[in-house]
Amino acid sequence: MGTQTMGTQISKLQALMLAISSITVTGHLLFIPVIINRAGRDCWLSLLVAAPFALFIGYMVSTLSKWYPNQTIVEYAQSIVGRWLGTLFALAFLFYFFHDAALSVRGFGEFFTSAITPRTPILVYFSAIVILAGYAVRAGLEVLARTNAMFLCTMIPIGILASILTHREKDYANFLPILEDGPGPMLLGSLNLIALYSTFLVLGMVFPQVRNARKLRAASVLTMGILIVMFLGPVTGPVAVFGGERGAGLSFPTYQMLRDIQVAELQRLDILAIFLWSLGSFAKISLYLYALTYGLQKLFKLDDYRSLVAPTGALLVAFSLLLSESFIGIYRFLQDIYPIYGLLMGFVLPALLLLIARIRRVMDSKGGPGNESERKARVRGGGGRREDNVPVRPAGR
């Protein structure tokens, strides 16, 4: 006899905290050295240029979820552009989630094997973080969101403490002269930041599970504003401490900054970075593994996403190994290719969906061609809050 499975629901705050953890740890591990290498002492200007785009990304993802309630991005892509083209969009988004998760797994392993335990095989770290993430994903989104909220409440005070402890070592004269090499490097650095902020798209897989979606758009834009502020210290700190040239040559500049600084009797502040990045990497990889498996369930109309967690996790470990022969190759990809790739997947394609959806809504409001397929899709999406999509048995059967 089957059992009825009710959908998991989380709060807006829990959903947005998932985004904060995810984007922050990716920025620290992978993007900050790339941005500093690109923009140098003008990295703070890159933050300012990228800020309006970040706010629009929050607006865009939340607006699509508001217009298509109870549907994931995999589902409303088909509602907006049709079944076949929408399926291509959905597959592109799912590959984007898979690839970003693999980059995070690789970054986590490279950090530990490069900076902490160089004799440990990197596969050990890959397997450990993916197994932990898989366990959390199988427990459900609510467990994942609650765990991340607990971690983030620990991570933010530690991050603030680390910034305060390193403040005395910072020399803001290192940011002069401004735009010495022209605006080009600064603009390239801003493209990397916009590509990083575009990973907020993953919440398109989470927002349908939000308990109360009122004011979701304002909350999303506010979250992106918080992320902009949270990156001010990590992006500018290494340049203020080490200078533009040395800061650009470090693989993990924020870790190096904490490791080199001693405050009175306090030594080995690098343990703060290890703690933060370990918790953050777990949250990021868990979120993306959930988004990927839940998206596959929705796309192929499977009974339960949990059966996909183990094989998807195994593929994630294998793909992380195959991304590049060395971490230098990963950095080159993030610097030269990812800005275009990330903007296409996380910004251009969702913006195109938003534009088409807006046109269809305007036509519908003016009495234009009936949007029957969209209305039917919304009706079908009414039960989209059930994570595993198991139909409810009629009473008495």
Rank of each mutant, 00 (worst) to 15 (best):
T199A: 10
T154F: 13
I73K: 00
S373C: 09
S65L: 06
S251P: 07
T3S: 08
D336F: 03
E142G: 08
L55Y: 01
E265I: 03
C153F: 01
T293R: 03
L187S: 07
S220M: 11
D304E: 08
Y331H: 05
A357K: 00
K66E: 15
T147P: 07
M155R: 03
L179A: 08
G2S: 15
L308E: 03
P394D: 07
L161C: 03
A310D: 04
M60P: 03
F282H: 12
L353C: 04
L141K: 04
L123Q: 05
G233P: 10
Y338W: 12
G184T: 15
I356V: 15
F97R: 05
D100Q: 10
L232N: 01
P177E: 05
D388Y: 03
A318D: 15
L29Y: 01
V105N: 09
M224C: 06
I261E: 03
A213I: 13
G247H: 04
Y341K: 06
Y135A: 15
D171C: 00
L272K: 00
E387Q: 13
M6F: 07
V362Q: 14
S21F: 07
T236M: 08
M363F: 08
V392S: 05
Q209T: 05
V263H: 00
F97A: 08
Y288T: 07
M186W: 04
S365H: 02
A395S: 12
L132I: 13
I129H: 00
V137T: 11
S163H: 02
